[in-house]
């Protein structure tokens, strides 16, 4: 029973992973790609690790999977934040269909 629940959780996680990577390929600029890829792949891998935890039961492996899950939940948004800031500072423009860019306006104002 628990292995069935684990397999279902793993399947959901893998589907989210796949959709995140499709978003990485399809979306038009760096910031949108970051949005899709970070959210979907983070939650997908967390589902995958929790599926591993459920089907393994209480053991050293599942404790390590829990630690890995916490690490991923902390590091993935931080890395996305760093890349977005770096991309904007290095002068990558937003997609031409974008509505507004308050950050660039404020940076222009400071100069």
């Amino acid at each position: 029973m628990s292995s069935l629940i684990g397999l279902i959780l793993m399947g959901i996680g893998l589907l989210f992973d796949l959709f995140g990577c499709i978003g990485l390929v399809r979306l038009p600029d760096v910031y949108n790609r970051l949005q899709a890829a970070t959210k979907c792949v983070t939650l997908g891998t967390c589902f995958l690790l929790s599926g591993v935890m459920v089907s393994e039961g209480v053991s050293a492996l599942s404790v390590k999977a829990l630690v890995c899950m916490i690490f991923i939940l902390i590091i993935s948004p931080t890395a996305a934040h760093a890349i977005a800031r770096g991309a904007h500072l290095s002068g990558v423009k937003l997609w031409e269909g974008s509505v507004c860019d308050k950050y660039a306006e404020d940076r222009e104002g400071k100069k």
Partner: peptide, 23 residues
């Protein structure tokens, strides 16, 4: 930056690989 994003995501996908392999 596009390449950097892709490498970051690749790292997390490899974590998934390791999880399935250990199970």
């Amino acid at each position: 930056p596009d390449r950097t994003v892709a490498i970051d995501i690749l790292g997390i996908v490899v974590v998934g690989f390791c999880a399935v392999l250990s199970l």
